[in-house]
Amino acid sequence: MLNGERLVNRPFRWAMVGGGRKSNVGYKHRTGALRDNANFQLVAGAFDIDPTQGKDFGVKIGVSSDRCYDNYQEMFAKEQDREDGVEVVTIATPNGTHYEITKAALKAGLHVICEKPLFFSSAEGEEIKDLAEKQNKIVGVTYGYSGNQLLLQMRAMIEKGQIGDIRVVDLQYTHGFSATDEPEKTSDAQKWRVDPKVAGPSFVIGDLSTHTYYMSQMIMPHMKIAKLLCDRQSFVGSRYPLEDNAHILMRYENGAVGTMWVSSINAGCTDGHRIRIVGSKASLEWWDDKPNELRYEVQGEPVRILYRGNDYLDDLAKEDERLGALHTEGLSDFWANIYHRFALAIEAKNSGDLKTLEALIYPGIQAGIDGIRWVENCVRSANANSTWIEYDHSGQKLHV
């Protein structure tokens, strides 16, 4: 159980690029990183594309004015000259900037934590992976929902054979907040998400489903997709060629089948983020709207609800427990869990502790690359008139 004690040698000096006053995600990052005050301390930032607004915001969240920089280039250069310069940077900027900022950060000797989807292409991902290894740094990806402990309970139960052989994987991440074009008119953070030059080759597949895809892979690390079919639509026409809805069919190498429904136009839906794994003996279902509950349905027996924080859960699901079963936890706690694991990964990388690093379950650079390849495969199928394609795990088949 986590209680805020220091589990790393000392807090890492941390900075942000982006994540300012108008950011949709900046506060989530700060909530996660600073929940365990012993892991990270926010000491610098280039918080906004408008330097004046960025400095005003940074000072108001407690960063010294002389360490609120006009841009990331200035910050990396000046922080390198300080004895107390930053060691880790979070990149919370639009998708199209991730690659160049991550590359610059690694070259400046910084560990990187980056928003998803990581980059536009898996080739960029492989290049950054090589650079990170050369620089002896980690690159973490903020798949925030993956910090939910009950997902690790699902992983443990599947590994122990408690649901039998996996037959069906049913994934969904939907909401209705973009059912019209109004968000693009009122929110700068939404406007860039539907611009291919900034967002990349997809909207909801990259913005939403990469979360759920990673979570499914974390739960079922040995399940690999063999074939995929993606049918995507732009129901709000101004978003074309990017999609606001997609249905994806999957066939796994072990014979299981899967579906993913991802949508921002599921009108009336506030939170449609669910994962259901159907086995030959039983099924498991997790729903983000009830994040402290896991449904365990054994064929022929009453439904069981497993609650977060209880002693009957697997040890794997109790490692990041914070409040105890009596009290509910939510998304901010799950972000804190992945930032906690980022801190452990950075500490292990710095000390050369490969055993600890390899044992950690956290979304690192390979998870980011796998997310890019997921998007690439979906787009490749959709652009080929929504046909079945062999799933490319290598990143080589970029075109049909």
Rank of each mutant, 00 (worst) to 15 (best):
residue 215 M to I: 03
residue 369 I to N: 01
residue 292 N to Q: 04
residue 397 K to I: 13
residue 165 D to H: 06
residue 344 L to Y: 15
residue 88 V to I: 14
residue 14 W to T: 12
residue 78 K to Y: 07
residue 387 T to E: 08
residue 198 V to S: 08
residue 158 I to F: 01
residue 271 D to R: 02
residue 266 N to R: 15
residue 389 I to W: 11
residue 359 A to N: 13
residue 131 L to M: 09
residue 25 V to P: 09
residue 384 A to C: 06
residue 120 F to S: 02
residue 168 V to Q: 10
residue 173 Y to G: 00
residue 156 A to Y: 00
residue 164 G to Q: 04
residue 287 W to D: 00
residue 201 P to M: 03
residue 311 D to H: 07
residue 268 G to C: 13
residue 243 E to F: 15
residue 382 A to S: 15
residue 181 D to G: 08
residue 354 L to N: 10
residue 18 G to Y: 14
residue 49 I to M: 03
residue 243 E to P: 15
residue 223 M to V: 08
residue 161 G to M: 07
residue 332 S to R: 11
residue 127 E to V: 13
residue 375 V to P: 05
residue 15 A to R: 01
residue 320 D to G: 12
residue 273 H to N: 13
residue 253 E to F: 13
residue 370 D to C: 11
residue 130 D to R: 09
residue 162 Q to P: 05
residue 363 P to D: 01
residue 342 F to C: 15
residue 343 A to P: 04
residue 53 Q to C: 14
residue 345 A to T: 15
residue 270 T to D: 02
residue 209 S to C: 04
residue 62 G to Q: 01
residue 328 T to N: 08
residue 399 H to G: 12
residue 63 V to K: 00
residue 350 N to S: 10
residue 181 D to I: 05
residue 121 S to I: 13
residue 350 N to Y: 11
residue 157 M to C: 10
residue 104 A to L: 14
residue 371 G to T: 01
residue 133 E to V: 12
residue 140 G to N: 08
residue 146 S to A: 10
residue 30 R to C: 10
residue 258 G to D: 02
residue 364 G to N: 02
residue 21 R to A: 13
residue 236 V to K: 10
residue 56 D to E: 06
residue 232 R to V: 04
residue 302 P to S: 01
residue 167 R to D: 11
residue 396 Q to W: 12
residue 136 N to I: 14
residue 45 G to W: 06
residue 356 T to K: 12
residue 101 I to A: 07
